[in-house]
């Protein structure tokens, strides 16, 4: 029986007095790739923020490896191995590429281990190696996304959450990004990928959830999703 990696029970949260997520429940099994899709403005990013601790949980519980994490501040969740790879803008704009990557390994104090991981990341993203001394403000969108993923890899966390890895990128770059994500399974086996549309996810995800207006309204395997194209048209207008 596969162990549970992440369990969400009746998660409710929002901003100020505005409720965005209503009673979400889901389970991510260890070693699986779970995709969450849904239209813009229906709580995808809110879910990511609630999981990583950037906004607080109003009601419900979140468990990582059967320990409750919903009361922990963001940095302690990272210590527990829940790594978020944020959307493009959450980088440190006035630092070099290498400094950004080193901050990804902030929790590692062993210098040799740190440089070993740095080499590994540079091995995956040769582009970042070329630009290691460049200020990240000057990077292109695709390079920033690579940096963001590479920075997440530095920590070699237990589970990774990718927030819209294809957002705002050219199709060719998206292909590259997804190749890398497929390769991620070797490093961090459990992935939660958030996307607006399912086309790319279908190839890598084991289970896909559909998030609409703060609620999961459907879940199933990618092949089941294909059968329900009618529903996709309704929700996503594809």
């Amino acid at each position: 029986m596969p162990t549970e990696s992440l369990r969400i029970e009746n998660l409710t949260t929002g901003y100020g007095r505005r409720k965005v997520l209503k009673n979400l429940s889901m389970v991510v099994e260890e070693g699986s790739v779970v995709g969450i899709i849904g239209p813009n403005g229906h709580g995808k990013s809110t879910l990511v923020k609630a999981l990583s601790g950037l906004i607080s949980t109003w009601e419900g519980r979140v468990f990582l490896k059967n320990t409750s994490i919903d009361n922990l501040p963001a940095h302690e969740r990272v210590e527990k191995g829940l790594i978020q790879i944020p959307q493009g803008d959450l980088i440190f704009p006035d630092m070099t590429v290498e400094e950004n990557l080193m901050l990804g390994g902030y929790l590692i104090f062993d210098k040799e281990e740190l440089s070993r991981r740095l080499e590994k990341v540079y091995g995956i993203f040769s582009r970042l190696l070329e630009r290691r001394k460049q200020i990240t403000r000057t990077l292109s969108g695709g390079e920033r996304r690579m940096l963001s993923i590479g920075r997440g890899l530095m920590s070699e966390g237990y589970m990774m959450i990718l927030d819209e890895p294809s957002l705002g990128l050219a199709p060719k770059i998206i292909d590259q990004v997804y190749e890398i994500i497929a390769g991620l399974r070797q490093i961090s086996p459990t992935l939660l990928v958030i996307e607006e549309n399912p086309t790319r996810l279908q190839n890598i995800a084991d289970i896909i959830y559909l998030l609409d207006d703060g609620e999961f309204i459907w879940s199933g395997t990618p092949s089941e999703l294909k059968k329900n194209e009618d529903m996709l048209n309704t929700y996503l207008g594809i």
């Binding site: 007095r17 505005r18 409720k19 559909l210 609409d212 207006d213 309204i217 459907w218 879940s219 199933g220 089941e224 329900n228 529903m231 309704t234 929700y235």
Partner: peptide, 29 residues
């Protein structure tokens, strides 16, 4: 949440039938 819901319902009142259908699909799935 009252105010927000009411405004949202007003904006996309035509969505409600799809919402029900979505739940049905979930069951079906």
């Amino acid at each position: 949440n009252e105010d927000r819901v009411s405004i949202k319902n007003f904006i996309k009142s035509d969505r409600s039938k799809y919402l029900k259908r979505g739940k049905w699909i979930k069951k079906f799935g």
